[in-house]
Design a protein around this nucleic acid. Structure first.
Length: 501
RNA sequence: GCGGGAGUAACUCAGUUGGUAGAGUGCAACCUUGCCAAGGUUGAUGUCGCGGGUUCGAAUCCCGUCUCCCGCUCCA
């Protein structure tokens, strides 16, 4: 067995439990699996639905919010407008010697000016560049130079290779010349084709983010719902990114689900809404049982091309802190671009000042798959009870896939019949599980492992006085209740977990 | 994509110098059991990740490949 850290062991235990109990399976496992893809099993799908439901309700139960569900396939021009066509395909090169990999644009961005000028000269683009920028070649800045070179080189692999051969582009890591491979294009969007014939003219993309489905529908939503700025639109849905490397179970996958909200507001109010949403979203994670000690808010140092302010809510996974939700001030970038590319007016009218403006957008984009994994990691706990190890998944009752298990203490004297009837009754209002196999203690532990908050046990007293015990997952304590009060009791405790027994 | 580790039952893992696979847990059935898992009896389940090669014979040796984990890289 390879040496592994405790956190690595923890992650493997969670992955193992997830499979064994039906939370998450690897995709296409009987065929050897598909890299970076996972399936949700019977318990996983319940929990994921609960998570999305909790998000949806918290977001839409307010007067300034509407929901949509946009198509995954969108007009290809959407991705030109969003910048994904340009920014989401980064040519990369490898160093044959030291095995380092670089993005071509990074390669030139790091170079000093002298080298850049030599390259421009060698590539014979210096004068062309000065002409297009309408200035003398000596006045062109280092950054502009790098930008133009990148633009030229990225479209011309032969040119790049000839520059490498001329020893103008050494490897930044090992310094060797002539060691870089030809640029390889990594398109981070999945491409498919509309219609039965595959050619470039009918290419479409699986969306790499759900946001654009909201932006392109902003007029439709405003007109149909009579919302006025400020207001938000939210959506839950799958997105796809052709990641170079998948990693860490559900954390970095090629197909993932987002829970996303775009809030449209007047320029000048965006900073306030950014702060408000950051706080709202932070508190949402806490409301589902995330301890503040395992969360942090990390502001972005380098901002994306569209953002004015951005930061991530990060959870401390076994492998370290990782983003579970991003909060971005996207400014008017997206709507302006769609306005430009579609030719449609996406401005709104200010009643007070009689001015027109393009709304600013504050985005909250939470990962459903990542959140799911975060709650599993957070809930997993091993503790010692009477000298035995107990594995308990401390999931918030809203998230728990099964809310209540019904157990006959023993399989005789009519206990199973009463238990079955109770289970049928409870099933109408919550997800339940009936278990009559083995000793009751073992059945409790089985439920602990999948995070079931309550177990109801029918015993011999039930036969005479119509009462049952309810055993609570975290404390393992039991109370006695009348049989006909069970449903209300559990419903209330799920609704408001802070109520004590 | 590079480097390192791993892949044998649902899970965790044994399997010696090559001789067609075992344990524990789990699962199923029956018995037992009256509140915190591992009492009893019986039973089922294996493309040894996949493909090829060497060999009379491969879980074991060789090559390729897939998947997972770690590090680098990447993550508009």
């Amino acid at each position: 067995m390879a040496q592994q850290s405790p956190s690595q062991a923890l992650q493997e235990k969670i992955v193992s439990l997830a499979k064994r109990r039906g939370f998450v399976f690897q995709s296409s496992e009987i065929y050897g699996g598909l890299n970076g893809c996972w399936d949700y099993g019977p318990l996983g799908v319940e929990m994921l639905r609960n998570l999305k439901e909790a998000w949806w309700r918290s977001m839409t139960e307010r007067s300034d919010m509407e929901g949509i569900d946009a198509s995954i396939l969108m007009h290809p021009r959407v991705w030109e407008a969003s910048g994904h066509i340009q920014n989401f395909s980064d040519p990369m090169v490898d160093c044959r010697e030291c095995k380092s990999r670089y993005r071509v644009d990074h390669l030139f961005a790091e170079m000093n000016e002298k080298r850049l000028r030599n390259i421009a000269k060698a590539a014979n683009i210096e004068s062309a560049l000065a002409k297009t920028m309408n200035m003398e070649s000596k006045d062109v800045t280092k950054e502009q130079l790098a930008e133009i070179i990148v633009g030229t080189v990225e479209k011309n692999d032969a040119l790049f290779q000839s520059l490498v051969e001329q020893e103008l582009i050494p490897c930044p890591n090992c310094g060797r010349s002539k060691s870089l491979t030809a640029p390889k294009n990594f398109n981070l969007m999945f491409e498919t084709h509309i219609g039965p014939v595959k050619d470039d003219s009918n290419a479409v993309y699986l969306r790499p983010e759900t946001a654009q489905g909201i932006f392109v529908n902003v007029l439709n939503v405003m007109q149909s719902s009579r919302q006025r700025v400020p207001f938000g639109i939210c959506q839950i849905g799958k997105s796809f990114r052709n990641e170079i490397n998948t990693k860490n179970f559900l954390f970095r996958t090629r197909e993932f689900e987002q829970m996303e909200m775009q809030f449209f507001c007047k320029p000048g109010t965006d900073d306030k809404f950014f702060d408000d949403w950051r706080e709202t979203r932070w508190n949402w994670w806490l409301s589902l049982g995330m301890p503040e000690s395992k969360l942090r808010f990390k502001p972005h140092e380098k901002l994306a091309h569209y953002a004015k302010a951005a930061g991530d809510i990060e959870f401390e996974f076994p492998f370290g802190f990782g983003e579970v939700e991003g909060i971005h001030n996207r400014t008017d970038f997206d709507l302006s671009r769609h306005q430009e590319f579609s030719g449609k007016n996406l401005q709104v009218h200010d009643e007070e000042t009689k001015e027109k403006y393009t709304p600013f957008v504050v985005e909250t984009a939470a990962g459903a798959s990542r959140g799911f994994m975060a709650f599993l990691c957070n809930g997993y706990e091993e503790e010692t009870v009477n000298g035995e190890m107990r594995v308990v998944m401390r999931l918030h009752p809203h998230l728990a896939p099964v809310k209540a298990a019904v157990l006959p203490l023993v399989n005789k004297d009519g206990m199973p019949e009463i238990a079955e009837k109770l289970e049928r009754d409870l099933r109408k209002s919550m997800k339940t599980f009936y278990d009559d196999s083995g000793a009751v203690g073992r059945r409790y532990r089985r439920q602990d492992e999948i995070g079931t908050p309550f177990c109801v046990t029918i015993d011999s007293d039930t036969l005479t006085d119509q009462t049952v015990t309810i055993r609570e997952r975290d404390s393992m304590q039991q109370i006695r209740l009348p049989l006909d009060g069970v449903r209300n009791y559990i419903s209330e405790r799920i609704q408001n977990p802070s109520l004590s027994a």
